[in-house]
Structures are given as structure tokens and as C-alpha cells.
Design a protein around this nucleic acid. Structure first.
Length: 616
RNA sequence: CGGGGCGUAGCGCAGUCCGGUAGCGCGUCUGGUUUGGGACCAGAAGGUCCCGGGUUCGAAUCCCGGCGCCCCGACCA
């Protein structure tokens, strides 16, 4: 395999043993997706599905089939002049363009390591989507510096650029939660093991993936190296503590203390925190052992109120994902087999990624009285009776960042919707002489101040150890929606060059630039949403027959709408044969105009229309 | 837990078959020249060759034993 290798993707070998007291219940053996050296090679050989036609980005010279004829663009220029050896560069170009499969490319690369390396050094640092979507996803994240692998398997470090996205998400969501009457609080990380056991379905749902704290200290052994410390058996806890996989149990236990009368209801609480679920296989942002999220928990006097709350928050999430993330979602209800352990009903939002797999982007549960009964959460009614409260819980997580990446980004890296972009505008001044540097930097500074005045997040890139072109690539990889290039010629003409991350470069007058930039950002935000929605619709089919369904799930995949009998056995069989699951029983506005009469799979009467897809 | 593969500089790799004391590219640092789409020249720093034994005058390389990591399969937001 002949590709540029980069980025600290080794999930190091340090730090085992440091947490002897914390164990994954169950086989905590699996490792992080996408690390390691040998791993990359192996991965290229395991393409699950053939290339798909989502590949729509700009085609650049460097990616065209034959770099030698790719014109004077950077494709040609990037080939090192040392490498004149016949055929090599050409073959390399083809490989880079993803036109050969991994094994063939690998074989060839091994034959000509040096030529290959030299070419690659200058080339594409991100695997094209068409070649290997998973690799592309990892590369895009690493290049954008959103995250990095941690020494602990299954865990990730969220880097400043990625964390800023999360902060912006938090800011928007938190305001919406407050606007709907919720208050933030914080509940502890550790939960008594016995709490988890109190709700039967809930335990079963999480038992296989909880981390436990069983001991409270280590002791020195006097030995060398890793053996220098060991768990102190004297420090064993009487009752192990569960590291929260979600906080229903502790929160409703506390609610039971605080709620006595109908006058205490509704109680509307949210918390921002981290949680731990010991997953077998993990992927950056999409599934990591520890992740950040928000969990809302509420208590109500009636079932109807709880139901309304669960639906309301689903709507809040939808608004956020559409308006901020520019990510279209289908809302609906989960089937019995997909619902949250312990819930009465689960609602969810599902988005379609560029590889035509569905991503559950958030959930909202009507918990009924299940937890109220388990934790004795009762209140006195106005009439003097004693009733169990009705609860809801709802959450979205850093997983949304993965969804954001897979919804908009392209082969040049991250594409960030402006409203969530840590840097909305990057200004790149261009100069030759010192005088020019002073001049363009000055104008750049003025532009920055002007844009900031209207609330735009701006970065002025004054680094002098990089050529402008290199800066362009970097800001593109980081997803910056709008780039302003200011050179001496522009200054003379009273303009800047504005380049959109989504394509297109044009001069814009300095006069009124802030307004123009703001409008451009709005326009990019809107066009990203529209493009994503169009793509989803292009990859949705309705009223499928069984045969169509099977074919569709093989290739190219997407959302399939059809009748569903509601039987778990049928659902299981579909999963078995096609790997597709019911994502949601869609809400009214997403349903087909004609209600299906029969289950698309077994032919029995349909109880609801369902949306199927292969899912993350 | 089953099936594959891998462990050499920050990253990606060569060297291992056939033992001779470690190399390439990128990156980093210093100086200079550059800067409108991934700069160039010169110099420099950087390695417990996963760990432990053994064979040998000599081990990254051969032998034995560990450990770790990745991918695929069974679980899930």
C-alpha cells in the first residue's frame, strides 16, 4: 500500500496497569479502531463494500488519472522532479486516485518503495472516500486536528479544534434547554452497583458494558517497572461502584428525595458530563469507551406530560441538528428491540452519512413509571393520593461531531457548517517583501477587527514559515468555511479574494466586506443543509419489495421505507440477512404518501411504516 | 473468545530469509534565500530495533518464552 502515512495513530502501549482498580465487566479486550501500523495495511484489504457514487467533490488536478497530463496545476507540480523513472509516477497517480484496489496497489508499492515514498510525501494526506470510507473518516479527523488516539484503548483525546466544536454545540443546545425551562445540575460519576440492578430491563441493557471500581488504592511492591505497584487487596470496596454508563438510577434516586408533592412537579434537569460504556469496538467520536454528552432527566405528574416532554426534546434536537449542524434527520419511534433499556418508548433522530449508513444522532425516552417505581419516586396528588411520577430522559453526545464530519466533509478534509465552525473565516495575507508584509498584515488586521465586530470568528494567519498555498490546504483540512486571501494586488484594488470551502473563489471589495462575509457564511450554511438533504433523498427508496430491499442494502444502501409487521422475529431475520435494522418508525411528516398495507419482508399486515438502513 | 497480520527515530517504512553493531522519506531544530495553491539550499538533533532468556567472538537479524497492538467475526449511542 502506497500512501502517505502520518499522524500519531498508534494507540500506544503505555498506561496499562495504571487502572487496575477499574475494570471492564465482560471482555474488555477489543481495541481501538484505526490505530497502529500493521493495522492500516490490514484495513485496506477489508473493504466491505465497493466504491459508491457519493464522490462528488471538486476533482483536482492531483487526483486526475494521469498526473503527467494533469496540467500546470498542483498535481503536476507536486511530483518530485527526481522521480523520472518511467511509469512510476503515473502508476502512483492512478493509485492515489483510488482506481486500483488496495491489494494490487500494495503489491506494487512494495516493489518500488522509494519512488513511492517520494511521491507520496507530496501527495494527498487524506484517503479518498471512494477508496476507503473508514480510512477517510480517520484521516479527516486527524488532519483537522479534531481528536487523537489516547494511550488507553478505546479512548480518545478531543483536541482544541474538536473541543471548540463541542463547546459551540453545547452553547446552542444549552440555550435551547434553558429556553424550555430546564436547569443544569451535576450528579456523580460513581453509582452504587446495587442501583443499577433496581430496574430489571435497565441492568440487562448495561450489565455487559459497565466499568467497575473495586479497589481504592495501589501499593508499592519494591519491584521494578510495571510491577512496582499493585492493587492493594486491603482496599477492596464492600460494594463496587459503577462508572456511570448513563445516570437514570442515581438521578431518580435523588429525585425521590426531592419530590414529595405535585407542587414539586415538573422537575426539569439537565447535566453535561462524561460517561463510560465498555465497548467492544470503538471509533473516533462515534463510539468510544468514554464520551461526553448531555442527559436531560425530568419528572412529571402525568403520562401525557412526560410524553409531551419527550417529544418536545426530540424537536429541540431536530432543530439543532438541522439549523446548526446542517444535518437533515428523520425523527420517529424506535421498535421494541431498538429502544432504550428501561424505557416505555424511545424516540430517535437518524441521519444518513455519505457512505449510506445511518447514524443515530440523538434519543429521547418516555421512561413511564419504570424508574419511579424502582426508586420509589412518588408524589402526593392534589386529591391527597400517592402516585409514581412519570419520567423522561434524553441525550445527545460528542457522537454528533462524527455525524457532522460524515455529513459534509470531502476528500480535502473537514467541511464545517459555519454556525459550528471554530474558525469561520481564515485570513491569509500574501507578501514578498517586508514592506508588502507590513502592508497586507495591516489590512488583514483591519479586516479581522471588522469581521469580529459583527460576531464572526476570525483567524489571521501571519505565520511566515509557510507559503500561502500550504496555509490554504491547512485551513481547508480544518473545515474553515470561508478564506480571505489578501495580497498586494488586492490591497491596491481595494479588495480581497474570498474562497469558499465548498468551492468558488472571487474578489470581494473591502468596502462592506463584513456584511458580504456574513452573507456568504449564511449561504454556505444553507447550501450544506440542502446538499445533505438532497443526498439523503437521492439515497432513499420508498415502498420497497423484499427483493428490492435485499438488493438495495447490498448496494448502494441508504434509507429504505416499507411496511413492517412489527414482529421481532421478522426484524431479526432482516438484520440477519441484510445487516439492516429498523432505524425508526417515522413521524408523520416523514412517512410515505401511501400507507403500506403489508410487511415488505414477510407479507403479513403492516402495523407501521418503517425506515431501514445499515447503521453505525 | 475464534481466524489473520504486525511490533525498528515524532510519523510512515526498509533492513530480518543469508548475523558484522542501524538506514530512507516526511516532520523537527539552526542559518540563509523564498512566499498569489503543499518552497529550496546547507547544517543539526533524534533509536531500550516490544520485553526476557539462549546460541555466537558478534544478534534488529537465529532459537525459546512472554507482552502489546491492528483487522475480521459475536455487543452497542
Amino acid at each position: 500500500m502506497c500512501r502517505v502515512r502520518h499522524g500519531g495513530r498508534r494507540a500506544g502501549r503505555a498506561a496499562q496497569g495504571a487502572s487496575e482498580g477499574i475494570r471492564g465487566a465482560g471482555a474488555a479486550r477489543r481495541l481501538f479502531g484505526g490505530g497502529g501500523r500493521g493495522g492500516r495495511r490490514a484495513r485496506a484489504d477489508t473493504r466491505r463494500r465497493p466504491a459508491k457514487p457519493w464522490h462528488r467533490g471538486r476533482v483536482r488536478a492531483a487526483e486526475s488519472a494521469d498526473p503527467q497530463t494533469a496540467g500546470a496545476g498542483r498535481g503536476a507540480r507536486r511530483l518530485p522532479r527526481r522521480d523520472h523513472r518511467a511509469g512510476r509516477a503515473q502508476g502512483e497517480g492512478r493509485r492515489r486516485a483510488g482506481l486500483e484496489d488496495g491489494e494490487a496497489a500494495q503489491g506494487r508499492a512494495d516493489e518500488s518503495p522509494e519512488g513511492c515514498l517520494q511521491v507520496m510525501a507530496q501527495a494527498q494526506k487524506i484517503t479518498p472516500r471512494a477508496k476507503d470510507f473508514s480510512e477517510w473518516y480517520n484521516d479527516a479527523i486527524m488532519q483537522a486536528e479534531l481528536a487523537d488516539y489516547s494511550p488507553v484503548r478505546g479512548c480518545m483525546v478531543i483536541r482544541p479544534h474538536g473541543y471548540r466544536i463541542w463547546e459551540l454545540m453545547q452553547g446552542a443546545l444549552d440555550a435551547m434547554f434553558k429556553a424550555t425551562g430546564h436547569k443544569n445540575a451535576y450528579f456523580p460519576l460513581f453509582i452504587p452497583q446495587s442501583f443499577l440492578a433496581k430496574e430489571a430491563e435497565h441492568v440487562e441493557g448495561f450489565a455487559k458494558e459497565v466499568a467497575l471500581v473495586t479497589h481504592t488504592r495501589l501499593r508499592a511492591t519494591g519491584k521494578e517497572g510495571a510491577a512496582a505497584i499493585e492493587v492493594d487487596p486491603e482496599s477492596k470496596l464492600e460494594e463496587p461502584l459503577v462508572v456511570r454508563p448513563t445516570s437514570e438510577t442515581i438521578i431518580y434516586a435523588m429525585f425521590a428525595k426531592w419530590i414529595h408533592s405535585y407542587r414539586d412537579l415538573p422537575l426539569l434537569i439537565n447535566q453535561w458530563c462524561n460517561i463510560v460504556r465498555w465497548e467492544f469496538r470503538t471509533r473516533l467520536f462515534l463510539r468510544t469507551t468514554e464520551f461526553l454528552w448531555q442527559e436531560g432527566h425530568t419528572a412529571h405528574a402525568t403520562e401525557a406530560e412526560a410524553e409531551a416532554e419527550a417529544r418536545q426534546m426530540l424537536g429541540v434536537y431536530r432543530k439543532f441538528q438541522e439549523d446548526w449542524m446542517a444535518m437533515p434527520v428523520i425523527t420517529g419511534r424506535k421498535t421494541e428491540s431498538e429502544k432504550f433499556a428501561g424505557a416505555l418508548r424511545t424516540y430517535a433522530l437518524e441521519a444518513l452519512m455519505q457512505d449510506n449508513k445511518a447514524l443515530q444522532a440523538g434519543t429521547s425516552h418516555n421512561l413511564g413509571q419504570n424508574f419511579a417505581k424502582a426508586f420509589n419516586l412518588q408524589y402526593q396528588t392534589a386529591a391527597g393520593g400517592l402516585e409514581h411520577a412519570w419520567n423522561t430522559s434524553w441525550g445527545v453526545s460528542t457522537r454528533m461531531i462524527g455525524g457532522l464530519v460524515m455529513t459534509h466533509s470531502d476528500d480535502n478534509g473537514l467541511v464545517c457548517p459555519p454556525r459550528l465552525a471554530p474558525v469561520q473565516v481564515a485570513i491569509v495575507p500574501i507578501w514578498k517583501s517586508e514592506e508588502e508584509k507590513t502592508q497586507v498584515s495591516g489590512v488583514g488586521g483591519q479586516v479581522k477587527a471588522e469581521l469580529e465586530k459583527v460576531g464572526i470568528r476570525v483567524e489571521l494567519d501571519l505565520r511566515d514559515n509557510m507559503k500561502p498555498g500550504a496555509k490554504y490546504f491547512e485551513w481547508e483540512a480544518k473545515g474553515v468555511p470561508l478564506r480571505l486571501e489578501i495580497g498586494p494586488r488586492d490591497v491596491a484594488a481595494g479588495q480581497v479574494m474570498t474562497a469558499r470551502r465548498t468551492g468558488g473563489k472571487a474578489p470581494t471589495p473591502l468596502d462592506g466586506l463584513a456584511r458580504a462575509a456574513a452573507l456568504a457564511l449564511d449561504d454556505i450554511q444553507a447550501s450544506l443543509f440542502k446538499a445533505a438533504k438532497d443526498r439523503r433523498e437521492a439515497h432513499s427508496i420508498r415502498s420497497v419489495t423484499k427483493q428490492q430491499f435485499i438488493e438495495f442494502m447490498k448496494e448502494p444502501g441508504g434509507f429504505a421505507y416499507g411496511g413492517f409487521c412489527g414482529l421481532a422475529a421478522c426484524e431479526a431475520e432482516i438484520k440477519q440477512t441484510t445487516a439492516a435494522t429498523v432505524r425508526v418508525l417515522p413521524d408523520l411528516e416523514f412517512r410515505s404518501s401511501e400507507t403500506p398495507k403489508a410487511c415488505m419482508w414477510c407479507g403479513k399486515p403492516s402495523v407501521a411504516e418503517a425506515v431501514w438502513a445499515q447503521a453505525y
